[in-house]
């Protein structure tokens, strides 16, 4: 349709616009990505490898994986439950619930960390009680997990809600009239219909969980080898002027981002093909 002369620009204008867009995107996206890898390898592969296998880097990777392994499943279950409640049922307060689900998007990550400090920190509401019972949340793994959960809270729900809204509930209704139980309906009808959207939401949630910086920074205490996640470890190295090591660790997260984008496009292409085969 872009070949019709009435609705497109002359060739020079077109190429000018394409050129400008390409320039903007390469300056903005490609250059920073490239810089990560160039800076990481600036002092050679030895420094690069050493940075990756240092005990504190490995412990940071472990902590990042642990936090994501808790936060992502929790928010996935929440996302499915919320989408089910909001899209398959009508109830009073539905609009309010929808905007509350989006709320964390408008909250600074730093505040997402701060609220937990106010609740569970040494001088927080439950601080004295936790101290009495010898429970540490802030500056420990539980705090990091709570901060990550807060920040990645809406991702899966946000992906599923528009999808399930568009699909409607006719298929579920059909399954009901055919005698299916709730679980049978969910597993055999709903889940196959939302699996790609769900995967997509989980990917985004995971990328954010592993990359979260601000919220985790507030609750972690920056104890190297103990409560540093990978992004925090990068910050510490950077602030100690170990630039190559910092960028070496950053390549891991850069690769994670590229992997996420790659899977995302693959999912999109696949679902698009399927969607266009449907009439």
């Amino acid at each position: 349709m872009h070949h019709r002369s009435a609705t497109t620009e002359s060739a020079p204008v077109r190429w000018l616009l394409i050129g400008l867009a390409l320039l903007a995107l390469s300056l903005f996206l490609l250059l920073p990505l490239l810089a990560v890898f160039v800076e990481a390898l600036r002092r050679g592969t030895d420094v690069f490898c050493a940075a990756l296998v240092s005990p504190s880097a490995l412990s940071a990777v472990r902590l990042t994986l642990t936090a994501a392994a808790v936060a992502v499943p929790l928010n996935t279950v929440f996302g499915v439950a919320a989408a089910w409640a909001v899209t398959k049922h009508q109830f009073r307060g539905r609009a309010l619930l929808l905007s509350l689900i989006d709320l964390p998007f408008a909250v600074s990550p730093v505040i997402a960390g701060l609220v937990w400090v106010l609740l569970f920190g040494a001088r927080g509401w439950f601080g004295p009680w936790l101290a009495d019972h010898n429970i540490q949340i802030i500056f420990e793994l539980p705090g990091i997990i709570l901060a990550t959960v807060f920040v990645t809270f809406p991702f899966v729900a946000r992906e599923l809600i528009p999808l399930m809204e568009a699909q409607g509930s006719d298929q579920e209704m059909a399954a009901v009239t055919l005698g299916a139980s709730g679980w049978q309906m969910f597993r055999r009808i709903t889940l196959p219909n939302i699996k790609w959207g769900l995967l997509y939401g989980v990917l985004l949630c995971n990328a954010r969980a592993m990359g979260e910086f601000g919220a985790v920074s507030v609750v972690s205490g920056h104890i190297r080898g103990k409560t540093n996640t990978l992004p925090l470890h990068i910050e510490v190295l950077y602030n100690e002027y170990q630039f190559s090591a910092a960028f070496a660790c950053a390549t891991l997260l850069g690769l994670l981002a590229l992997l996420t984008l790659g899977l995302k496009s693959a999912v999109e292409q696949f679902t698009h093909q399927r969607a266009s085969r449907r009439i």
């Binding site: 006719d170 298929q171 209704m173 059909a174 399954a175 009239t177 196959p192 219909n193 449907r278």
Partner: peptide
């Protein structure tokens, strides 16, 4: 029950 748009399970 036969739905107006059939509601066949696409998968």
């Amino acid at each position: 029950f036969v739905f107006q748009h059939y509601a066949l399970f696409p998968h």
